[in-house]
Design a protein around this nucleic acid. Sequence first.
DNA 1: CGTGCAGTTTGTCTAGGACATTATGACAGG
DNA 2: CCTGTCATAATGTCCTAGACAAACTGCACG
Lengths: 300, 300
Amino acid sequence: MNTLTYNIAAVERDTGLSKDVLRMWERRYGFPTPERDGNGDRLYSADQVDRLRLIKRLMDLGHRPGKLIATPYEELAALAPRRMAASPAVPEEHAPELDELIDLVRRHEGGAYLQAMQQRLARQGLQRFVQDTVSPLAHRVGEAWEQGTLEVFEEHLFTELTKRLLRQSITSLPAGNRPRILLTTLPGEQHLLGLLMAETLFALEGAGCIPLGTQTPLLEIGRAASAHQADVVALSFSAAFPARQIPALLLQLRMGLPGEIELWAGGSGVARIDDTDGVLLMPTLDSAVRALAAWHASHT
Amino acid sequence: MNTLTYNIAAVERDTGLSKDVLRMWERRYGFPTPERDGNGDRLYSADQVDRLRLIKRLMDLGHRPGKLIATPYEELAALAPRRMAASPAVPEEHAPELDELIDLVRRHEGGAYLQAMQQRLARQGLQRFVQDTVSPLAHRVGEAWEQGTLEVFEEHLFTELTKRLLRQSITSLPAGNRPRILLTTLPGEQHLLGLLMAETLFALEGAGCIPLGTQTPLLEIGRAASAHQADVVALSFSAAFPARQIPALLLQLRMGLPGEIELWAGGSGVARIDDTDGVLLMPTLDSAVRALAAWHASHT
DNA sequence: CGTGCAGTTTGTCTAGGACATTATGACAGG
DNA sequence: CCTGTCATAATGTCCTAGACAAACTGCACG
């Protein structure tokens, strides 16, 4: 077995912890303690990178680095239960069925997973499929990931296949037009699944969706909104996005946007932040649907 | 008009130039010269960020920063013609039609674009559609971007819509099984379009594709390949991926992978690197198709 | 006209320090 | 027993400046 080592840049890429943070932790907490190569450059072992990844994940859930680093590795895996209070995300009665779906991913049966999902889609209809299957499933996958019962690559496969399902469903819908909603994420936010769920629900209600994919620079969002005569700009923030930066970013975007264009921000990343002037926060899919209904009501 | 300013982290996100590089350039070349806020932190103007983005793009094409920074802004835009030698990517006779497609994006008519593409797909069949339409179109969009005749958000829309088309096409194909090909990109590489084109062509030839999306950590690729009993791991590198790192990364992955699993690396990012032991390089879609044919021939 | 070497260019790493921001926990008051 | 306020501790991000390896250039020589 070859022992992979990582230089500091590779660790940054793989864990999402910046070089500054890695060096700071070493200085302050004495962890991690990488080897050094001939030039004095840090060389991290795969073990340490694994632990760092886990720590990062737990931090995204609200834990504090000082504590995590002091905790022995074995206990870390058990630390998940610092969930957000208001997340009864998975209605109990559906849990077993969802677990079956996840098991398909775990057994690496991509084809079977897709088929099972198609079946559910046909049975539930698109709206309920998104709200009662895809959304709780994504939550559950996140939880499984945290507890280490799902491999990273399994989560990748799940995400990719599920995105395909949603995009396919969206394409099959007739093109809507009111309101015109521009959907994207800010630079640094790569998660698209939540945005796709929202797009699906919006499209179902007759909205005209303009999907820009992920990571559109702030200025470009403004230009795009004007060019497409959008009524709404909808952004999505995952739990992994640095929550502290969100209010400032929203404010900056709000200022660069014509006043008549509404700004909506959704995703579990906004659950933890306060209301901002001129921005509509929608931490759940439900609230997003309600927001659209409200828009329709006020633009008759 | 509100003047947005960027701190150094925002510039890093938006341009892809690391903080270290930004500070180094300032020290060495005297550019950029950001303002400072009350704490002495750098504040970049939108102008400077624009210029930096352009410089980054030209560097990805092979230009050198020292020269670029010495060149006045107006001349930068004209510098595109340092293309890779072997890229007659766009057959002349098709160019006008492709430009019409791009014009649809430029006029922000997403629906019309999709329709036109669907039509071409029906006319050409999937294989020729990918090779003669999507691939040259993507090249052409890249060129337009470089020359500043296409906005960033327009390129985003193009990419997102085109990805949908391809994924939809892939889903509609019968599931293949030989060889089993695991497709993904390494951490840091976010571009998926090229990989989707390859997947489409592979699936057309009866391969069993396992799409993991983008940015799978090295170790995870190995685990995934074993878990899925893949015959081949196929990676894609765009021109924006730091070419210098590619050989080392491939080697590292190769070592962590069972010998009987082949490793294929494609995309314009590999056009500039040398052959590596145990890795098959395929800088064009053509060569990818040939590689698959060769695989079939040698596994009868 | 190729080939190899020396010089130059460029990026990435190192170290430690400063400071703004956010969370914690103790304490006071209802 | 709950709630709000504040000092203190914890944490991340930025700063400067220096060192060095790797990649590229261009020249001299065969």
